[in-house]
Design a protein around this nucleic acid. Structure first.
Length: 594
RNA sequence: CGGGGAGUAGCGCAGCUCGGUAGCGCGCUUCGUUCGGGACGAAGAGGUCGGAGGUUCAAAUCCUCUCUCCCCGACCA
C-alpha cells in the first residue's frame, strides 16, 4: 500500500477526549474514529489489525473442531423471553420495535439464537459434540462506555458455543478451549493470565476469564506469587485472619457508648481508639429473590468485620439472589436501623434477612452501631445478642490477605478481561428445549459451553501493553503491515525513487505486507509516522545507501540499524520477519487446565 | 443514576470574569527555496462559537432550558 493513497490522517496531538494510552494511540495512528459514546468506526489500518486478530481466532477455533456460522444481530424478543433474560436483563439489552409492532432486541450475546439453532438441527447423540462459533457485532447499551475500545457499546466478538451429550464430554472439551485461548492471545502478542471467575448472568458451573494485566483494567485480580493462585476479586477467597487470643475471649456485657458525629468505621476506630478489626460493619441491601416462581424484594442486613469489605458477588451468590441494590434511607429506617449506626441487635427481625460473614461468629466483643444516631454498642456478640439467618464468606480478598492455598500474602493487580469461557451446563438447552436422543433412546438436554473474545478490546489491550513514547509497537503477527518502506527521494535523486519502487514491487511479489511511504514529505515526518503506526520492520532507501548498494533495516522494537544489500534484500527481510514471528510464537503459554 | 469536567476551524487551545460581531499553534491548499528524525518564506481556504429560547441597540461572552462528550462512582456475558 502506498501512503500517498492510504485513507488516513495521523494526528500529532491526541484528541482531548482520549484519556487512556491505547485510545490516544488508536486515534493518532488513524486506526479508528469515534462516532458516539462507545461506538467506533474502523479505518483501513485498524481494520487490517482487526482482521488479523480474527484470522487467528478462526484458525484456533477451527483447530478444535469449531465450525463458523453467522447469527443475526437483530433477534426476536420471543427467544429472549423463553430463557427469561428478556425480563432479567435491564437496560443493557437494547430493545426495539419493528413496523408491525414486533418486539426485537439487538443481540448482546447469542445463547438464545444458537441454542434454538442447535435444537433444530441436532436430534441424536451421534451429532454431538459440536462446536459452533461466529465473529459478529454485538450491542450492549452499557451505562458507561470508557477507555476507548476497552469498554464499548457496539463491538465485534468471537463467540463460540459447544454442545455435548453429557457433562463429561464438556469437561473434556473445556480444557481444549482453554488452551486455544492461550494460543490466540499468545499469537496476537498479548500476555494474559487465566483466572477463575464468577459465572454471573451467564449461569453455569465453571468459568475462567483471560485477563491482560494493565492499570486501565476494570477488574481487580487477586494473585499469589508463591503458589500461583489466581482469581478475580469477585470470587477470590483467602484465609481469614484468625486471632487465637481473642477467640477465647469471654463475652462481655453489652454497653452503649456515645459517639457523636461518628458514622464511619474509620472514625469509629479512631474515636474509641480500637483497631477496625474490633468493629462490625453493617450493610443494608435489597435483594431480588425468586420464591415459588415469584420475584420478591427482600431487605438484607449484612455484617462484616470493620477491617473487611463486602464482596457483593459473594453475597449475591450466597443469597441465590437475582439482583442486589443498596437500600434507601427510608427502607433502612423502616426496619429499625439507622444509617451510619446500624446494628444487628434490635432490628425488626421478621422483615430482615440477616447474613453475617463467617468471621463474625469467631470475633467476640465487637463494636457495632446502636441503631440510633450518635450511639454505638460495645461487646456485641453474634449468637448471644442476635441470631443470623445465614453465615457465609461475604468479604472481598485484598492485597496482604493470606492465600487460600499456601497462606502467603496475596497481591492485587488490575486487569482487562479480554476473553472468557464458561461451562454453561443445561441452563439454555432446558429453557429452549434443546434435547437429543441418547444411546438408550431417552431424551436429554444438551450440555453447553460458551466462549467469547472481543476483537477490539483485544486490539486495545495489545496497544495498551505494547507502546512507547513514539507510538505503537505492534507484534508482527497482528501489525497492519509487516514492513514500512521509507523512500527518502528528492527531486534530485530519481535513482532513490527508482530503487524504492523496485524494492516495493519485489517485496510485494514475495507476499510481504509493505506500507510504502512514497509521500513527498521530509524524512522526519516519515520516520515519525512509521514509529507512530508501529510497523515492526522499517526499511529505508536513501541516496547514501543506494550509492553503496544497501538499504537500512530497523526494527520498531529496538534501536539497531542494519544495512542490507539491495541485490539480496528479499532473503534478509524474510528471515527477519520469520524471526520476529517466532519470537512471538515462542512466548505462547501452554498451561494444561487441571 | 450520583459526583466532577468540557463543548469555539480537521487536532490542540485562547477569548467569556468586565457584551461591541472571533484569534493562536499544528494540519490543509498554491508558489518558491529546502530535503536522513515532525523545514523556511509568501499567499490562501476553512468556524451558524453544540442546540433552542431569553435579556440587550448589540451575545462566543449574561440568564433559562436542552443535547453531546470525557473522568470517578454505581452497574457490567
Amino acid at each position: 500500500m502506498r501512503m500517498s493513497k492510504l485513507f488516513f490522517q495521523t494526528l500529532r496531538e491526541a484528541p482531548a477526549d482520549a484519556d487512556v494510552r491505547s485510545h490516544q494511540l488508536m486515534l493518532r495512528a488513524a486506526l479508528v474514529r469515534q462516532v458516539a459514546a462507545g461506538i467506533f468506526e474502523y479505518m483501513p489500518l485498524g481494520l487490517r489489525v482487526k482482521k488479523k486478530i480474527e484470522a487467528i481466532m478462526r484458525d484456533e477455533m477451527d483447530a478444535i473442531d469449531g465450525q463458523e456460522i453467522v447469527m443475526p444481530v437483530v433477534q426476536p424478543a420471543a427467544l429472549w423471553k423463553r430463557t427469561g433474560r428478556w425480563y432479567e436483563i435491564g437496560d443493557d439489552l437494547a430493545r426495539l420495535t419493528d413496523r408491525n409492532g414486533r418486539e426485537l432486541v439487538l443481540g448482546m450475546t447469542h445463547e438464545e439464537v444458537i441454542t434454538e439453532l442447535a435444537a433444530g438441527v441436532i436430534n441424536s447423540y451421534r451429532q454431538l459434540p459440536v462446536m459452533l462459533y461466529q465473529i459478529q457485532t454485538k450491542f450492549r447499551d452499557e451505562p458507561r462506555p470508557r477507555g476507548g475500545l476497552i469498554r464499548v457499546r457496539e463491538f465485534t466478538m468471537k463467540d463460540g458455543y459447544s454442545f455435548h451429550p453429557d457433562i463429561s464430554s464438556l469437561d473434556s472439551y473445556y480444557p481444549l478451549v482453554y488452551q486455544a485461548y492461550f494460543n490466540i492471545f499468545g499469537r496476537a502478542g498479548l500476555e494474559v493470565i487465566a483466572v477463575e471467575s464468577d459465572t454471573g448472568m451467564m449461569g453455569g458451573t465453571m468459568a475462567h476469564e483471560f485477563m491482560a494485566l494493565t492499570e486501565v483494567g476494570e477488574d481487580t485480580l487477586i494473585l499469589c506469587d508463591a503458589c500461583g493462585y489466581q482469581a478475580n476479586r469477585q470470587v477470590a477467597t483467602f484465609v481469614k485472619p484468625e486471632d487465637e487470643s481473642r477467640a477465647e475471649e469471654e463475652a462481655l456485657p453489652l454497653e452503649e457508648v456515645a459517639t457523636p458525629e461518628v458514622n464511619t468505621i474509620a472514625a469509629l476506630a479512631e474515636f474509641l481508639e480500637i483497631p477496625e478489626s474490633r468493629t462490625a460493619k453493617a450493610l443494608f441491601l435489597v435483594a431480588t429473590i425468586e420464591e415459588d416462581g415469584q420475584e420478591k424484594e427482600q431487605f438484607v442486613f449484612a455484617v462484616v468485620r470493620g477491617d473487611m469489605d463486602l464482596n457483593e458477588t459473594k453475597l449475591t451468590n450466597a443469597l441465590k439472589a437475582r439482583q442486589l441494590r443498596p437500600a434507601q434511607v427510608e427502607e433502612i429506617r423502616a426496619i429499625g436501623a439507622e444509617p451510619g449506626y446500624g446494628s444487628p441487635v434490635g432490628i425488626l427481625r421478621d422483615e430482615v434477612l440477616l447474613v453475617v460473614d463467617d468471621l463474625i461468629p469467631r470475633s467476640p466483643n465487637l463494636v457495632a452501631g446502636a441503631n440510633r444516631a450518635g450511639w454505638h454498642l460495645r461487646n456485641v456478640n453474634c449468637g448471644r445478642d442476635y441470631q443470623p439467618d445465614l453465615t457465609a464468606d461475604l468479604v472481598a480478598a485484598a492485597a496482604g490477605h493470606s492465600c487460600p492455598n499456601c497462606q502467603a500474602p496475596l497481591n492485587a493487580v488490575r486487569g482487562v478481561e479480554v476473553g472468557n469461557i464458561f461451562k454453561l451446563g443445561t441452563k439454555y438447552s432446558e429453557a429452549m428445549e434443546a434435547a437429543f436422543l441418547d444411546e438408550d433412546g431417552g431424551s436429554a438436554p444438551m450440555v453447553m459451553g460458551c466462549y467469547g473474545i472481543g476483537s477490539g478490546r483485544l486490539m486495545a489491550s495489545v496497544i495498551e501493553t505494547n507502546n512507547d513514547d513514539n507510538g505503537i509497537v505492534w507484534p508482527i503477527t497482528i501489525a497492519p503491515y509487516q514492513l514500512y518502506l521509507v523512500s527518502l527521494a528528492t527531486r534530485r535523486t530519481p535513482e532513490v525513487t527508482e530503487t524504492a519502487e523496485e524494492v516495493y514491487a519485489q517485496l510485494q511479489d514475495a507476499g510481504i505486507e509493505v506500507l510504502y511511504d512514497d509521500r513527498d514529505e521530509r524524512a522526519g515526518v516519515k520516520f515519525n509516522d512509521a514509529d507512530l503506526l508501529g510497523i515492526p520492520l522499517r526499511l529505508t532507501i536513501g541516496a547514501r545507501g543506494v550509492k553503496n548498494g544497501v538499504a537500512e533495516l530497523k526494527l520498531r522494537r529496538g534501536d539497531e540499524i542494519r544495512e542490507l544489500p539491495l541485490d539480496d534484500i528479499l532473503k534478509h527481510v524474510q528471515a527477519v520477519i520469520e524471526n520476529e514471528e517466532n519470537a512471538i510464537l515462542d512466548k505462547v503459554i501452554s498451561e494444561p487446565l487441571t
